[in-house]
Design a protein around this nucleic acid. Structure first.
Length: 527
DNA sequence: GATATCACG
DNA sequence: ACGTACGTGATATCT
C-alpha cells in the first residue's frame, strides 16, 4: 500500500455555499464577476459540500468542469461512523482552529488537512472516481424528482379509511371497551391483562406487541387478526397516503433528498420523502407503486441487479462452487437447498428453496444459528447443521469469512473492493455480544459496501451516457440495487438498453452481473 | 427526545 | 449462562 502521490493543488478554486449563496475563492480572496465562466474554465475546484455545490450549479445553469476535492465527502470516507460532517465540527476533529470572523481561512486549512489524510489513507481514487462524480448525479436526481398521481392516491386512501374504522370497532368490541390500538401500552394491557393472553418478549418498557408476537397468538383469540390488519392499514395510510400527500410539490412531483454521507456501508439513503421504502412485498402495499408515475408522454424504465450481494460474495471469496453456479446461470437458492437440505425429506422444493434463500441472507448478514432458526422455524440444532453444511459446500466462503473477521480484528476496520473503509470498534469489545455484532459487521460490510460501490459506478455511467446519447431521459431514483430512468415513450427501449449495459459492465467480477429491466407508465407496471 | 413498530434492500 | 442476522427512515405514542 502506497499513499497517493498526487500533490495538493494550492491554486485550486475554493467553492463554498454560504447562506445559500455560491462563494468562490482563490486562496482566501473572494472572486467576483463571471462565476460561470470561471467554474467552467477547467481550473481545479475544491468544494466544501459537493452535492450542495452541484445543486447550486443547476440553479445557476453552471456546468463545473473539474471538481477535484470535496471536504464533506473526504471526511465521510475517512470516518463513515461520524454523526455529523458539519464544517465547524470537522475543524475541531482535525485540529484546525475555527475562526468565526474569517471562516474561509479555517476551511481552507481544513481542506489541506483532509486532502493529506485522504492521500495518506489511499482514498483519493474512490473520492474522485466515485463519490464526487456521484454527487453531481444525485444533485440531478433530486432536481428531477418523480411525478405522483395525487388523485389516485387520495382515492386509494378513501378506500382504506372505512376499513380502518371497521377494524377498530371490531377490536374494541372484542375487548369490551374503546382504547387506542396504536398505543403499544394500552394494547398490551388489553391483551396480556384483560384477556389474559400469554405474553412473549419483553421490551424496555413492557411486553412486546409486535407482529411476530401477535402471530403466535392467532389461534388463541379472535382479536389478533383484526389487530394485525388494523396495524397494516394504519401503517400504510399514515406513512404512504398522508406521508406522500404531504411530500408532493405544487408541480405534482416529489423531490427526495439523497443522503450521501449517512450510512456506515457506503449506501445512499433517501428522505423527505423516503422513496426507498415504498411498499412492494404485500399485494395491498404494492398498490402504492401505481401512484408513482411517469409524466405525460413518458415512461419509467426500471432496472435491477439480480442477487448482487451474493454475486459480490462469490467474487470476494473466490469460492469455486458459488462462482460456477453463477457462471452457469444456475439458481443459487435451489443449489443451496440441495447442498444444505439434501438429507431432508417431506418438504416441497418450493419450501426448501424459500428456506435456502433465508440461509443465503443469513450468510450475507453474518450468520447466527439462533436467528436463522427463528427465521425459518426450525430448532437451533437444525439451523446449526444447515450452516455447517453450507460452509462445507461453499468452503471458500467459510475461509473468506474467517480471514475477513481476523483482519478486521487486527486492523480495526473492514474494507470494500474499492477501498471504502469502516472502522469497527465493536470487534474489540470485551462484551461478547458486542464483539459478535462486530464480527457480523465485518462479514457484512464488504459485501453490502461493494454492492453499493458498484451501483454508484453504474449510476455515474448511466448518467453520463444518457446526457450524451439520450438527453431527454433522466435518471431519477435509486433503491440500492435498482435504478429508475424517466424517458419519453419513444426512446424507452434505448433507455433500458443503456441501463442494462452500464449496470452489467460497471465492474468486472469473477461472476457475471445480471440485470432485469422493464418499462411502464407506473412503478407498479415495471415489475 | 426516546421508544416501539414496520416499510424497504 | 446469555442474547441473538446487515443497512436504512417515518410515524405515533409515551415520558
Amino acid at each position: 500500500m502506497t499513499a497517493d502521490k498526487t500533490p495538493y493543488d494550492k491554486n485550486a478554486l475554493n467553492v463554498l455555499v454560504l447562506d445559500g449563496e455560491m462563494a468562490v475563492f482563490r486562496d482566501t480572496t473572494r472572486v467576483d464577476g463571471d462565476i460561470k465562466s470561471i467554474l467552467e474554465s477547467g481550473e481545479a475546484i475544491h468544494a466544501g459540500n459537493a452535492k450542495e455545490f452541484y445543486t447550486k450549479c443547476i440553479q445557476l445553469n453552471i456546468e463545473p468542469k473539474n471538481v477535484t476535492f470535496d471536504m464533506t465527502l473526504a471526511a465521510y470516507l475517512l470516518d463513515v461512523n461520524a454523526s455529523s460532517y458539519d464544517m465547524e465540527q470537522l475543524c475541531t476533529k482535525y485540529s484546525v482552529d475555527f475562526n468565526e470572523k474569517e471562516p474561509v481561512k479555517s476551511l481552507i486549512l481544513l481542506n489541506k488537512v483532509l486532502y493529506d489524510e485522504i492521500c495518506a489513507q489511499d482514498m483519493l481514487k474512490i473520492l474522485r472516481d466515485i463519490e464526487i462524480p456521484l454527487a453531481e448525479v444525485l444533485a440531478s436526481m433530486e432536481h428531477e424528482g418523480i411525478a405522483l398521481d395525487a388523485d389516485g392516491l387520495a382515492k386509494f386512501g378513501e378506500e382504506i379509511l372505512p376499513k380502518i374504522a371497521e377494524l377498530e370497532e371490531m377490536v374494541c368490541g372484542i375487548a369490551g371497551h374503546k382504547f387506542n390500538i396504536g398505543s403499544p401500552k394500552q394494547l398490551s394491557v388489553v391483551l396480556f391483562e384483560e384477556l389474559g393472553l400469554p405474553a412473549g418478549k419483553k421490551r424496555k418498557t413492557g411486553y412486546s406487541t409486535d407482529s411476530e408476537t401477535l402471530e403466535e397468538l392467532l389461534d388463541k383469540s379472535p382479536i389478533i387478526q383484526p389487530i394485525l390488519d388494523y396495524r397494516k392499514l394504519t401503517k400504510l395510510y399514515n406513512t404512504y397516503v398522508k406521508g406522500l400527500q404531504n411530500a408532493v410539490s405544487p408541480d405534482g412531483r416529489m423531490y427526495t433528498t439523497f443522503k450521501q454521507t449517512e450510512t456506515r456501508t457506503g449506501r445512499i439513503s433517501s428522505s423527505e420523502p423516503n422513496i426507498q421504502n415504498i411498499p412492494v412485498r404485500t399485494e395491498l402495499g404494492r398498490n402504492f407503486r401505481k401512484f408513482l408515475i411517469a409524466s405525460e408522454g413518458k415512461v419509467l424504465c426500471d432496472a435491477d441487479y439480480s442477487q448482487i450481494e451474493l454475486r459480490v460474495l462469490a467474487s470476494l471469496s473466490g469460492d469455486k462452487v458459488m462462482i460456477e453456479t453463477f457462471k452457469e446461470n444456475r439458481d443459487i437458492h435451489a443449489e443451496t437447498a440441495e447442498s444444505v437440505f439434501r438429507k431432508t425429506t417431506g418438504q416441497s422444493n418450493a419450501d426448501l428453496r424459500r428456506k435456502a434463500k433465508a440461509v443465503n441472507f443469513g450468510i450475507v448478514y453474518g450468520i447466527g444459528a439462533f436467528s436463522l432458526a427463528k427465521d425459518i422455524g426450525t430448532t437451533v440444532g437444525d439451523a446449526k447443521r444447515y450452516i455447517d453444511d453450507y460452509l462445507t459446500h461453499f468452503s471458500g466462503v467459510k475461509q473468506y469469512m474467517d480471514t475477513n473477521t481476523r483482519s478486521a480484528e487486527a486492523d480495526g476496520y473492514a474494507v470494500t473492493m474499492f477501498g471504502r473503509r469502516r472502522f469497527i470498534p465493536e470487534i474489540l469489545s470485551t462484551n461478547k455480544v458486542v464483539k459478535a455484532l462486530g464480527k457480523r459487521i465485518a462479514m457484512n460490510t464488504p459485501i453490502q459496501g461493494t454492492a453499493a460501490d458498484i451501483i454508484k459506478i453504474a449510476m455515474i455511467r448511466v448518467y453520463k451516457r444518457l446526457r450524451k446519447e439520450l438527453p431527454q431521459a433522466k435518471l431519477i431514483l435509486q433503491v440500492h440495487d435498482e435504478l429508475i430512468v424517466e424517458a419519453p415513450e419513444a426512446v424507452s427501449e434505448q433507455a433500458l438498453k443503456i441501463l442494462k449495459e452500464e449496470m452489467q459492465c460497471a465492474v468486472e467480477l469473477s461472476v457475471p452481473l445480471t440485470v432485469d429491466a422493464k418499462s411502464g407508465k407506473t412503478w407498479f407496471d415495471t415489475h
